[in-house]
Design a protein around this nucleic acid. Structure first.
Lengths: 414, 414
DNA sequence: ATTTATTGTCAATACTTTTAACACAAAATT
DNA sequence: AATTTTGTGTTAAAAGTATTGACAATAAAT
C-alpha cells in the first residue's frame, strides 16, 4: 500500500546496544560511520542502509551541525569524488578500562577510537573492590595528567571485569574469581568518583566487541572471543550483538566438562577446561614435569611453586621443549572445548586472546587441529581460528567502544 | 529536539524472521497479537510497544480493514471494557510439516494457529528426497481431503527437516543423517508441487520456535530445545530470535565430546553425545545388557537386534528396571552436554523434546541433576529444564509459526 | 446518580522519508 | 578540447507515520 517512511533494513543489524530506538536511522548512520575503517560516503551509507541519498543527506547534515562527524579526505571513484564522513575525533575523549585478575589496563582514546595513550599496571582482583577501584582511579588520574588533561575532559568510561555482569545495574553477581565483589555497586561508585557516565561489562564480552569493532573480526556477525588467562572465558557476539544470556553469564566455558574423570577443579567437578588448560593448570603442570625429572629452563626458578603461566609461556617462546609441550597440551584441551562451542554456536570466527594467547601458533595450531577433528564439517570448515589482532588491548578497546556508544548516541539525541 | 515518529522499543524484540522492516510497528503489532494467548487490547499493545493509543488505533484499523485481525471477546477490567484483538482464524489455513528420521507429521491449522487436524505417518529419511517428498505430498492431500479442502485452500507451508538448512535457498547442506538430500532443492520442489510459498527450516529450530510460541517457553527470550530422537540436536532461540549461526548449523550438540575415551561414534570421534545417549546408543545398550544376562522384558523381543529405542522407552515406562537404568544413564550423559550448553548460552529454559522425551521425569531428573552439578550456579539456578508442552508436535507447530509469519506479514504489506 | 478509571477515536500538527528534478565533479569517449 | 557517461550530493514538494490534546464511551466504585 503506502511506500513512504522506509526504515533501514540493516539498521537493526548495525546497532550495538539497545539505545533508544527513536531516530533509528540516525543511530544506524552513526554506527556505520564509526565502524567503517577510513570513513564512508553518503551514497554508501544510503546503499547499505536501504535509504535514499536525500534522507541520508538530511541526517548527515544534522550530525555535521552537531559536530559529531566531520567531512574528511576524498577518494577517487568513477564519477564525482565522494566526501568521506568520519566521527569527529577532536570532539572529545573517552576511556576504556580492562580490569583483569592480575592486571588492569587503561586506554585513553579520542571520539574516533584512536588510542591517545594507555597504561597497564598490576592489580590483584582478590584485594576487593575498594582497593582495586582506588588503584584504577589513581592510574587514570596519572594517565590523564601525562596528557595534561583532567577528569572533566573525559566524556564516558567503559569498564570490563572478569565476572558475570548485570549490565543494567552495573555490578557483578556471584563471580567465581572476584572475591568480595559480589553485588558491590561498581558502576555507581565509579560514576560518583569520576562524574561521568560509566558502563560495566564482562571482559570477555568486551574482547569480542573490541575485536569485532577494530580487530580481527571486522564485519563478522557471529564470533566467539576466548580469553585465556588465569581462567578461561568466552565472549559471544551473535547476530551482530553482544550476547549475554538470561542472567548475564553466557560464555562461561571455563567449566565445560572435557573429561568426566579428569582432575578436580576448584568448582568441585572433575575435568573442567579450566582445570586442564587454565593459567593455574599450566603452572601446576610445569611443576609436575620438573618433579618427574624432565629437563627445562623452568627448573631454575626458585621455588618451583612460584612458576607462573607467564613463565611457561616465555620459556616455550624461547624454545624450551617441555614448556612447549605443556602449551600444546593446553591447546588441545582448549580445542576440545572450542569444538563444542563451534558445534553449538557455528561462529564464522573464533578469536583467541588473553595473556596466554601471546604465543601465537604454538597454541593456535593444536586448537585448530582439535576443532577440525571434533566438530562437524559444516561448522568447522566455516570457522577461522585466529589470535587477537589487538593483543592485550582487545577488552580495553571493547570498553572504549561501549563508552563511545553512550557518548555518540547521547550527542545525536540531544 | 524533535519528538515525533517514535518507533517501538520492543518491535525489534518481537519480530521473528527478518521480514521487511518497512511498517515496522505494523508487523510488531501483528506479532504481539498472534503471540499473546487470548488476544490483546489496543491499550495493551500501545503500552508494550511504547506507542500512543492513537497510533495503535490507525494501524489496527488498517489490519481490521484487511481482515487480518478481528475484534473478539471482551474481558472486564477497571473502566471501559477493552476490545480484544485476535488474528482472524477464518481468514485461511496453513500447514506445518515435520519430517523426522523415521516419521513425518503434518499439521493443518487456521490463521490463529489452532490445529484443525493432523496426521503422523512413518517415513524413512534414508529413502531420499524424491520418495520422501512424494509420501509427504500424499499425506497432505489425504489430510486435506478429509476436511473437504484442496491445496488451493492452503496459504503457505512450513517444513522442518533434521539437518543443517540454508534457509535463504531452501535446501540442506552436508546433513549427517539425510543421505541423498545434500543440496536437493527441497523448497523449490515443494513450491512447485503445492503452488504456495514454502519455508524450510531445521526441525530442532522449529521445535524451539513452536514451544516458544505456543508451548512451555512462552515469553522467554533465550531458550534451547533439545530434540532427542535417533540423533540429538538443539534448536536455539536467542534474544527472541531463532539463532542459526553463520552457516545454519548452530545447535549441533549431538557430537559434543563428553568422554575423550568413550565409544566410537559414526562421525569418527570418540565419546560423542549421540554415541552415548542417542536412539541407536540406547538400543545397543539394551542388547548389551541382555547379553550380559540382566533380566528384562526386552529380552522377549526376537531377534534382540531389532530392539528400538521406542521399545526401551515403553519398557521403562512399564516399570522394567533394566530399561529404566538405560534411560537414566542416557539422561545423565545428556545432562553433561546440556550443562555445557547452559554454561555457554545461559538460557532461561531448556526444553527436552523428541521421541525419547515422552517418558518425562525418568529422563528429566538425571538431566536436571547433571546440569545442577556441572554448570555454574549463576547459570544453573536461572534455568528451568522441562519437557515439551506440545509433545511430538513441537516442531510441527514451529513450522506452522513460520508459515503464518509469511502469510500474515505478506497480507499486512499488501 | 455521580465520580473515577480506563479504553478508544478524532483532528491538527510534527517529524521523517520519498520523489523527482537538478547541480556538481571526475573519468571515458569522441 | 568538447562531449558523454557515471557517480555524488542537494533541494523543494509530497507522502507517510506518529504525537498531541481534546473528547466520547463504558464499566466499577462511591
Amino acid at each position: 500500500m503506502k511506500t513512504g517512511s522506509k526504515r533501514a533494513d540493516k539498521a537493526i543489524q548495525v546497532q550495538i546496544g539497545l539505545y533508544k530506538v527513536k531516530n533509528l536511522n540516525k543511530h544506524a548512520i552513526i554506527d556505520l560511520i564509526r565502524f567503517t575503517p577510513g570513513g564512508i560516503s553518503r551514497v554508501e551509507l544510503a546503499r547499505q542502509l536501504g535509504l535514499t541519498r536525500a534522507a541520508v543527506t538530511t541526517i548527515v547534515n544534522d550530525l555535521l551541525e552537531k559536530n559529531i562527524i566531520c567531512e574528511d579526505e576524498r577518494k577517487s571513484a568513477g564519477g564525482r569524488t565522494p566526501i568521506v564522513l568520519e566521527i569527529n575525533p577532536k570532539r572529545g575523549r573517552v576511556v576504556g578500562v580492562d580490569i583483569g585478575a592480575t592486571h588492569a589496563n587503561i586506554i585513553l582514546a579520542d571520539y574516533s577510537a584512536r588510542v591517545i595513550r594507555d597504561h597497564e599496571f598490576p592489580l590483584r582482583i582478590g584485594d576487593g573492590p575498594e582497593a582495586c577501584l582506588q588503584k584504577v582511579d589513581e592510574g587514570l588520574r596519572e594517565l590523564l595528567a601525562k596528557e595534561g588533561l583532567q577528569l572533566s575532559d573525559v566524556s564516558a568510561v567503559g569498564v570490563g571485569v572478569p565476572g558475570p555482569v548485570v549490565v543494567e545495574v552495573g555490578l557483578v553477581s556471584a563471580p567465581p574469581i572476584m572475591p568480595g565483589w559480589d553485588n558491590f555497586p561498581i558502576r555507581d561508585r565509579l560514576e560518583a568518583m569520576w562524574g561521568c557516565p560509566v558502563t560495566l561489562n564482562n571482559d570477555a564480552e568486551l574482547g569480542a566487541l573490541g575485536e569485532w569493532a577494530y580487530g580481527a573480526a571486522r564485519g563478522e556477525s557471529n564470533i566467539a572471543y576466548i580469553k585465556v588467562g588465569t581462567g578461561v572465558g568466552a565472549g559471544l557476539l551473535l547476530g551482530g550483538q553482544i550476547y549475554r544470556g538470561s542472567t548475564g553469564s553466557a560464555g562461561e566455558i571455563g567449566h565445560f566438562t572435557i573429561d568426566e574423570n579428569g582432575p578436580r577443579c576448584s568448582c568441585g567437578n572433575r575435568g573442567c577446561l579450566e582445570a586442564m588448560a587454565g593459567g593455574y593448570a599450566i603452572s601446576a603442570r610445569a611443576v609436575q614435569q620438573i618433579k618427574a625429572g624432565h629437563r627445562t629452563v623452568l627448573a631454575e626458578i626458585d621455588p618451583i611453586t612460584a612458576i607462573t603461566a607467564r613463565d611457561v609461556i616465555s620459556a616455550a617462546r624461547r624454545g624450551d621443549l617441555v614448556a612447549q609441550h605443556i602449551v600444546i597440551d593446553g591447546g588441545r584441551h582448549l580445542g576440545t572445548a572450542i569444538a563444542s562451542l563451534v558445534n553449538l554456536i557455528n561462529p564464522s570466527m573464533v578469536i583467541v586472546g588473553g595473556g596466554v594467547a601471546q604465543i601465537g601458533d604454538l597454541l593456535l595450531e593444536p586448537i585448530r587441529q582439535s576443532v577440525k577433528a571434533r566438530s562437524l564439517r559444516v561448522s568447522s570448515s566455516a570457522v577461522r581460528v585466529t589470535e587477537a589482532l589487538l593483543g592485550r588491548r582487545s577488552s580495553g578497546m571493547g570498553a572504549v567502544v561501549q563508552a563511545l556508544t553512550i557518548v555518540l548516541h547521547e550527542l545525536a539525541e540531544a
